[in-house]
Design a protein around this nucleic acid. Sequence first.
DNA 1: AATGAATGAGACTTCATTCAT
DNA 2: CATGAATGAAGTCTCATTCAT
Lengths: 224, 224, 224, 224
Amino acid sequence: MVARGTQPSRPRRLGRPIASDGDERRRRIIESARRQFARSGFAGTTNREIAERAGITTGAIYHYFRSKLEVYLAVFEETDRLILERYAQVTADPTMSFDQMVAAILEVSSQMNREDESLAAFITSASVDAHRTPDLMASYRGHDRQMVSFFERLVDRGIAEGSLDPAMRSDAMAAIRVLTIGLTWYSVRVHDPEAHRKATVATVAALRGELFAPGGQRRRRKAG
Amino acid sequence: MVARGTQPSRPRRLGRPIASDGDERRRRIIESARRQFARSGFAGTTNREIAERAGITTGAIYHYFRSKLEVYLAVFEETDRLILERYAQVTADPTMSFDQMVAAILEVSSQMNREDESLAAFITSASVDAHRTPDLMASYRGHDRQMVSFFERLVDRGIAEGSLDPAMRSDAMAAIRVLTIGLTWYSVRVHDPEAHRKATVATVAALRGELFAPGGQRRRRKAG
Amino acid sequence: MVARGTQPSRPRRLGRPIASDGDERRRRIIESARRQFARSGFAGTTNREIAERAGITTGAIYHYFRSKLEVYLAVFEETDRLILERYAQVTADPTMSFDQMVAAILEVSSQMNREDESLAAFITSASVDAHRTPDLMASYRGHDRQMVSFFERLVDRGIAEGSLDPAMRSDAMAAIRVLTIGLTWYSVRVHDPEAHRKATVATVAALRGELFAPGGQRRRRKAG
Amino acid sequence: MVARGTQPSRPRRLGRPIASDGDERRRRIIESARRQFARSGFAGTTNREIAERAGITTGAIYHYFRSKLEVYLAVFEETDRLILERYAQVTADPTMSFDQMVAAILEVSSQMNREDESLAAFITSASVDAHRTPDLMASYRGHDRQMVSFFERLVDRGIAEGSLDPAMRSDAMAAIRVLTIGLTWYSVRVHDPEAHRKATVATVAALRGELFAPGGQRRRRKAG
DNA sequence: AATGAATGAGACTTCATTCAT
DNA sequence: CATGAATGAAGTCTCATTCAT
């Protein structure tokens, strides 16, 4: 016997809720699931956790998705889309230099992380879960392939404009991947936007030879 | 079933036996568990899987460990110890320069990965599981702290010998962590020792400003 | 979608309309349900399956029936009525002999099965479900009682006309029930109208002693 | 806090029970499952019901079988074997006539039914479930095929000894199947061994033409 | 020391039913 | 009238853990 109508916390009764929008609910589930998957992984996340965060019962999830796996895939798809859209946006200007683009990407990554920390956390989480749960691998590979091809275009742009040595193409690719992976993980682990930003800046500086170049002599970009 | 490391036929040497049967079993469980935890995570690994790989039954695990959690912690402890010992070994020589030390660490990381790929895989896996299973966090923090303090000593050594700008200390720390995390993950994912080695070289070069420094002109270390 | 029995273009006849829209829906649900119950049983049939076959949603079922159980009972009632009506029809002629009646019943059973195989399938299915789901038992017993009393009248007619030995009344009843049950099941299982017809003929022949009494020479009971 | 040691009804504690024999338990599960499957069908039987009857918990079932389906298949296999063994036994004597064999089979069927009514009930139940649950079909077909081939050998024996007209082989097969199916179902439904026995006798008499051929005067096939 | 039978909690999933729209 | 969102109970199955042997 639950009091009804007054307590806003848990008064839901049987049947259709008073104001319910299918799309809205679906989105709520995805968002709730992303948080939980990011934190606890695929196996570690229970339907109850997802449902509770979304304000429904476990059964209702199955009204929108056929299985927990499908929820995960939906989260993946959306997260993937969100990130790549953002990357595409900030590199859309054709007059940008390679350097500017790299900086823009790192900047927007950092910014997205501040806006919604579950994005980066989910991606890193997914990279682990994909290796643990075969059914997730295909989705992950798709995401990975898109990321790689995005960076390929970026590097090729750098080569075209003379910023990169064509002989170093594969080296540049590897380095970029290592550093983006590293930065993403760093951001997830330290869990502190400011630290992430500083690490980003430091990494960019290092890439410019301003950090580890030996001999005590520091390089300056466009040094006068 | 199979004795490893020492010939079983050879008569026991004096002193404490190298490994009592119990110790041997325990180690087998830990090794089996590391592989499985690395692949499937803490929640995703079952006691049966661990037991089967170790050639025993689930009940026997409880003779050596009080719970699955304790198995995990034991794995962590040992893996942590193994890695840090190795790092300490290759940087023990007091005449090494900062550059040489960094190179030695990356080299030995790569080497360990070739010897037993479950080491890096477990560490990356653990960094996720720690955030997923609160009971694991303490152990993970301990490992992390040791790593950080190891790198601090390294950076301070670089500052002392003039290879690093003291003002850049925290930046350098951040960059090194980003780099090592990125490389570890890269190695686990690409799963190919040669690619890992190339990526290591490329990343080091990038951090020296030899890859992405703008203006088309490449810097050389010790340029004449 | 498809009007049945009467042309929809024909103007309404006087009196009660043949089928209001509601009635039509109700009948559609019953028909859909009979197919599904026949195939999957009471427990194995879901409301969604019934609804989908009937071209509506699950909620709509509850406008016509109070529960899944009531749908089942309605199906039962209708099926029962259909079969008994048909039996009554073909045995209505008072000049038929007992032998002719038995033949007519077997023939019309076979024919109904060809027209709508879900009828026999439902009846056999129901005989199982009744024993599985107590709430269905009452309905089933009703149907069974009607069948028994129909056969009783039939046998009594046979006795009256001298075709059956009065001392064998209960034996004849039992044999008839065994054979009708057997034939119905056989028809459902072999799922082939021609085979069913042949089995019917063979069974009738057997009952006449034409099959298992060898050598053309008939055995006599208490042959003296 | 359950009292232990004294109440024999439900005192089971965690861990291995005091006296436990794997084979025994397995057999108990199968027997319990047969009863329940016979009564409630595959879908209608819950693991809890099986477990409770067998005196264990649901989880323990999975120590012996991988799934509910496998329990069902094991039950089927055993039941099938039991029945066919019994049929083979009572028809093993090479000097028996066809008539004697048929009588022996019907007699032993009736007898088995008295010994354990779940046997016939399970078989009839299975014939329905096989059509409802595709995974059960293969097993059922196997059983059916064995039954058919058993009856084929029987009929061929009847032909060889001149008791059956070779031209009527398929008719005789059909009639025998109809008869056995009918008797089995009748026995399950009336649930009364004596009634079953009487029905058996009556049906056999009917097949000999002793029931429905009126006037004591037998019809002749191709009567001159 | 080790086995393997067993428990019990909890996971995912299905489904009859209810109800606002 | 009908839809479809939602609940809640129940079902199958898994698994860490316990314990007699």
